[in-house]
Amino acid sequence: MSRTALLAATMLATTAVPSMAQKPPVQKIDGLVNWVYDYEQGRKLARRTGKPMFVVFRCER
């Protein structure tokens, strides 16, 4: 499968938000996939490129 066929968006559930309004800092994942860490940004990219999204939620605990 082509590595560029799917947009990869990941939602890390391990980052911090000091107040309810702020977004937690992103903890990036190593590897070959260029993950998008913001869902709305991923949607925009999907719209622009015509690709589907692979949205991942992962927790480290």
């Binding site: 799917l6 949607r43 999907a46 719209r47 589907p52 999204m53 939620f57 992962r58 927790c59």
Partner: peptide, 14 residues
């Protein structure tokens, strides 16, 4: 999704 989980994914359009 099952929030007791540690990993879940969705294939979606824009």
């Amino acid at each position: 999704f099952e929030f007791d989980l540690t990993w879940m994914s969705f294939f979606m359009d824009a």
